[in-house]
Design a protein around this nucleic acid. Sequence first.
DNA 1: CTGCCTTTGAAGCAG
DNA 2: CTGCTTCAAAGGCAG
Length: 625
Amino acid sequence: MPQLNGGGGDDLGANDEMISFKDEGEQEEKISENVSAERDLDDLKSSLVNESENNSSSSDSEQAERRPQPRPDLDSYEKTRDYFSEALRRQQDGGFFKSPHYPGYPFLMIPDLTNPYLSNGALSPSARTYLQMKWPLLDVPGAAGLKDPRSPTPGHLGLNTYVNVIFTIFFSFFRKHFLTCFALSLWGISLCVFLLSLLQSNKVPVVQHAHHVHPLTPLITYSNEHFSPGTPPSHLSPEILDPKTGIPRTPHPSELSPYYPLSPGAVGQIPHPLGWLVPQQGQHMYSIPPGGFRHPYPALAMNASMSSLVSSRFSPHMMPHHPHGMHQTGIPHPAIVSPAIKQEPNSHDHMSPSMHSKSPGPAKKEEDKKPHIKKPLNAFMLYMKEMRAKVVAECTLKESAAINQILGRRWHSLSREEQAKYYELARKERQLHSQLYPGWSARDNYGKRKKRKRDNKPDSTPEDFSIRNKNQCVQYLPSEKMCDSPASSHGSMLDSPATPSAALASPAAPAATHSEQAQPLSLTTKPEGRLHHHFLTGKPSGSASSSSSSSSSSSSSSHPSISIPIGTSGSHSSHSAPIFSRPIPFSSLHHSMLSPPSPFHQAALHSHHALFQSQPLSLVTKSSD
DNA sequence: CTGCCTTTGAAGCAG
DNA sequence: CTGCTTCAAAGGCAG
């Protein structure tokens, strides 16, 4: 647990301490976020006003251009268009209709308007994509006929106009009252969709985008609280309040979506303003079986992302709460995994215990009844989920083991604040998890996984490094791919990461430097890779390193290359723990070092090294050849 | 097809 | 209380 090791921090209650520290920080952050959000919103409004004016003028000019050559069949069109334009002028004070700029999405700029964080339209593309995905039908340029005077379809002008007027009125209303009437707006959208369908049925040319993924796929984010423009963050009570009444309600999935902004990854790598909160590609920390939300069966295939977002934010307040676990009700939570789908091959249909009358079977059946509730993700896991895609994109690596090494290093390169975010997130997740599954215990999942190989060799001789047991020092990374990876050989890790990602990963250069300095030894320079991995392995992960100074010491002393369990790859916390965790939690220490450079950090760094030096025997080592 | 690899952190268990 | 073990995610890889 990264806590402040100094500077007023104490080692006890690391988690809570840090969390509390963080909470304060977060609150401040949030306040500032809100303020900035409001400011952004204001800016956005003003900018939109300007845009509106521009749009109006351009619209007029367009009309002027057409007037010289009026056509009889366009008269009615012109009239309706004028009417429409008038309606537009009346309604649009915010440039809501930016058709000239977004010809393809004449009326689909909602997210841009509704997202207070988009002062500069940075997210506009994603927002549009979002809408396209969310409401594919809306992607249809319903006013295409109107938009393009050259291809009018007089036969449908009336309908088009009607639709457009509906759009205009609805969206103006929508825009003005979005924050408070979102649900209503959705109904309006549904109406529009219906009308568009009508248009389609009337054979009005309709353009569908080919890049539709899943309409709901991009909606997932890890946390919505920071993105809901009109709803205050509710960290600990993820319930969704009715925007109008403020009363908790059971939202329809479609109603939820707006509160769960796009995941950057899902929308073309568009960086999210609050990227750290955004999970990867619509995935949630709890992978919920598809159909989790309302349909217990995968066949009903509610989009997993949607399910996760919905379920992840469904607190007991929203759903009937059963003290012994929501799963008893068949209510899905991301943490609930249907073994049939995942992991538990032997069990089946765990998701529907409530659906089926409790079939009292053999004693073992009881286990089957219990759905597999996954552990809440810890901070690092959350970080991994978020960053994995980036790392994969930046590197050609695909193997998770290698990616994880990189992530592990990056994790340690993160500033304390950044890590704190994830710790806080993880804490909330645990809290939510505990609320959702009061009776759940990590113990419940013990033995669920296939037997781990680790325990086979508890009593191997010090020299007898089990092949099975990973070498804690050897890089699992394929030699070809180092990226900004862990422990690049030759201390290349000390070099500043060439890739932008590296810089990204280590926002604070000093921190990164410290990090690197702090782990020089951990960078096992062995390019050997897997070969040594087999022969030079560290201790069996299980018994290996820690307590038994005997084994570890012998191994360490015998090998020239010393690998420090410093947060680096291979230093499983549990292994390294014996060395630092108790007296000076390693992560904590490391955190301090990662923090902005300061005398204290320097001291910590030195002490850290000193610590290592003082306990050479504890260091897991590996032979250099 | 199953399990390992790899990472960190949380939690449980054993002594 | 300390230390060890298991599990969480993820995807290539080996058997």
